[in-house]
């Protein structure tokens, strides 16, 4: 209670990642998003961010599904909103799994969105760099084997000569 008082004016933020069946149609995903929107609204919060990560291969099968479609929500709200959303998700048979995380106490929606965009850019850059490094390595390896092959053949030719 004391905690809530010190945070007056600030509504806590939560994030939920949902895995639905891989072959889920867009309409049912939309329905799910609508559902979450309405639940969050009814608890006096708002959905800050909605992301669809598309279909991904799961690291292990869940309910005999090896592919899952990931969606990610960030929302604000008080107390019971998470419990209510999770209750809804449990009812929905397309949902394989979900994970809700309480974001930091002083949740600032615009700042969060901005920060997330920045981090995504940084992650993308890292990916590209990794890819570039890999390319470089592959090129190096190709060069190396090109250099290597003629020398090896020369060596074998020399040994043949000596035998002869």
């Amino acid at each position: 209670m004391a905690n809530a008082a010190s945070n007056a004016g600030k509504i806590p933020g939560y994030e939920t990642t949902i895995i639905t069946r891989g072959e889920l149609a867009d309409e049912s995903l939309k329905a799910l998003q609508e559902r979450i929107n309405s639940v969050v609204k009814s608890f006096g919060g708002e959905v800050v961010l909605t992301e669809d990560w598309g279909s991904r291969k799961l690291a292990y099968t869940i309910q005999k599904e090896s592919r899952g479609r990931y969606s990610y929500f960030v929302y604000t709200g008080k107390g019971q909103v998470v419990a209510e959303i999770e209750r809804n998700l449990r009812i929905n048979e397309h949902v394989l799994r979900f994970l809700s995380v309480n974001l930091e106490k002083e949740f600032d929606a615009p700042a969060f969105v901005k920060r997330r965009a920045e981090l995504q850019v940084a992650a993308k850059k890292r990916d590209e760099e990794r890819e570039a490094r890999r390319e470089e390595r592959m090129a190096e390896r190709r060069n190396w084997s090109d250099e290597r092959r003629p020398r090896q053949s020369a060596h074998s030719a020399a040994s043949e000569d000596s035998e002869a």
Partner: peptide
Amino acid sequence: KRARNLALVGFVSSG
């Protein structure tokens, strides 16, 4: 551990 729950990485071997 959170990523494991979301099947992003495996519990035993990474796919």
